[in-house]
Design a protein around this nucleic acid. Structure first.
Lengths: 342, 342
DNA sequence: TTGAAAGCGTTACCAG
DNA sequence: CTGGTAACGCTTTCAA
């Protein structure tokens, strides 16, 4: 083991130094190391042995310069108070790794992704870009388009030049409405998420339209800002209403808000689901905890990330594929936070 | 706006194309753009104008190749079921950005960081490496050392060649023990974290030693795996004990486990802190929610990340500074999950 | 104040 | 099957 450790400050190996050591050309080393079939087995073995003995590490940046591909995917994320996005990020990191891609993380702040962030992406020659929990400003979109950097929005429907992968939020909203309606609920409220997130809007729309088709109007909509605290405040507001005016059922468009609502009810001594039903959306791990047991629509996280990377890699070769929007169906997870159909 | 958008497939600008356009040499462009004082003001302005008009983006990778610095920091993280690490990561991303650094994310799986991960870091010529929620294998440490890549562990004390920044876990453990002891508790239990995390061990040691010095032995230690579920199971175990044999106070060495413990007690109908006190460690956002209100030691997250990056950048110039371990004092946050001293 | 040229480490192309 | 050479885009001497 110690034999492979190198002195501090020792020069780093390169294809050239290896070539000299092996008595071959640099190009031969390069080819041998990436398994080019034209290199004879003995030569390859000799070079491989040498490389590993000397602890050679290829310089990906130099490779990028000459080949044009960096193996880097930019991952831009907005504020991730919502655990859904941590879970998404982890999934992305690990799936990218298995595909030999690395993630360059960019924090996008709370607004749309601006020029400087887009610039940063381009500076590092990312092969593509995954955007979650944020929108792309139109200039940023132009910049990416101009530089042939494919963009895939995850969990957002793109307003601009970009492909997207998302859960079928509209359908999920409908499904929850149906579940509650069949469960005998008749008066509904919604705790809304971020007002300019397509995700939240679609969920709400699905829910509302399903009920509207049955002649029911949603009685109340409160903003919950897609945060726990927002949900909690909303929950307190419901709790303060006279019981006879309170809705039967509440749809918080994100689990994290549903958790806040449920906690507010608990503190107020309002029984869930005995006095009021609460459903969420996302399927985050915390929503499944026994103390919440939230009935929700679980997003197919792994598949979303996988398909998202597919969309990206398909477009990376320079192949000019048209933008594509993929909607994946979420799965209704029936737990105990809502009274269920008989 | 539209004027700056470029046709799809148009060649990307480089110092060379800009130089041609401006009628100067490439080196002049390079110097002008980075504010080299030797370039005359008019020339600089002309070049700057041109660059921004044509949407020029420097290729950081090429720069790295010639200058040796990538501006990339490798961020290796283990499994981040614990929200503390999501919070840490976010903080790291944004602080790095303000320093002009970017983070390359590497998922380290659950074991120590192995050779291949270290290789990946080196391949991308990271200037330095931040490791959290994981240990560095001895080989990986050697590899980084050999390549002059400084390593800083965050929230871990290094076993090997690396600097580190952490909360003073030992002191925090003592402080919690003191708080509980002064609050009149006399029988204690610990819910342990990951058995080979220095963080957990130190917290536990601080707690145990404080009590031992007062002639009290910790009655019971249960493994909680640093997860909510682990805490929840531990809580159930306590709940099933005959009340007279149950400890007075429980120290869960991570807030996320304390949450599990508290929830288990709630389900079992055991009052916190009336029947039993629970304290945690970390200061994650969720621990402050009214339904938990966990008394805990809050880690100074922002300062930890800041000092961690300081340690790193100080070593990046090639400056061979000795390894350094910085301990920051956490702050006791007294909330309502534990009976407090009179 | 500016230009020319030589690298940085890799890959790709063209010879042989 | 292998070797040379020319890129890739930028910085950095060294000259002018």
């Amino acid at each position: 083991m110690a034999g492979t450790a190198k002195e501090l400050g020792e020069e780093r190996e390169t294809v050239v130094t290896l070539a000299r050591l092996a008595g071959v050309a640099a190009s031969t080393v390069s080819r041998a190391l990436k398994g080019d079939p034209r290199i004879s087995a003995p030569t390859r073995r000799r070079i491989e042995a040498l490389a590993s003995a000397r602890g050679y590490t290829p310089n990906v940046l130099a490779r990028t310069l000459s080949s044009g591909r960096s193996g880097l995917i930019g991952l831009a994320l907005g504020p991730i108070a919502n655990p859904f996005y941590s879970e998404l990020m982890q999934e992305a990191v690990s799936q990218a790794a298995t595909r030999g891609l690395r993630l360059l993380m960019l924090s996008a702040g709370s607004g749309p992704i601006e020029d400087d962030t887009a610039q940063a992406l381009l500076q590092y020659q990312v092969d593509g870009c995954l955007i979650t929990s944020a929108q792309l400003s139109s200039r940023a979109a132009h910049i990416c388009a101009a530089h042939n950097v494919p963009v895939v929005m995850v969990n957002r429907v793109p307003r601009l030049h970009a492909s997207a992968i998302a859960c079928d939020n509209f359908q999920g909203g409908q499904e929850l409405a149906a579940f509650l309606h069949n469960g005998g609920h008749r008066s509904f409220a919604i705790v809304r998420g971020n007002p300019d997130s397509s995700t939240s809007i679609e969920r709400e729309r699905g829910f509302v339209e399903y009920l509207a088709a049955r002649g029911i109007a949603v009685a109340l909509r409160i903003d919950g800002a897609s945060t726990y605290d927002g949900g909690f405040s909303a929950g307190r507001m419901f709790a303060e209403m006279p019981p006879e005016r309170r809705p039967d059922a509440i749809f918080a468009v994100a689990d994290i808000m549903a958790m806040g609502v449920i906690d507010a009810f608990r503190i107020a001594g309002i029984g869930v689901p005995d006095e009021i039903s609460v459903v969420g959306f996302d399927g985050i791990a915390a929503a499944a905890r026994p103390v919440y047991a939230i009935t929700t629509v679980a997003q197919p996280l792994a598949r979303m990330v996988g398909r998202g990377l597919d969309l990206l890699t398909a477009r990376i070769g320079g192949t000019a594929l048209p933008d594509e929007v993929v909607l994946l169906r979420g799965e209704l997870a029936v737990r105990r936070s809502a009274r269920r159909p008989a």
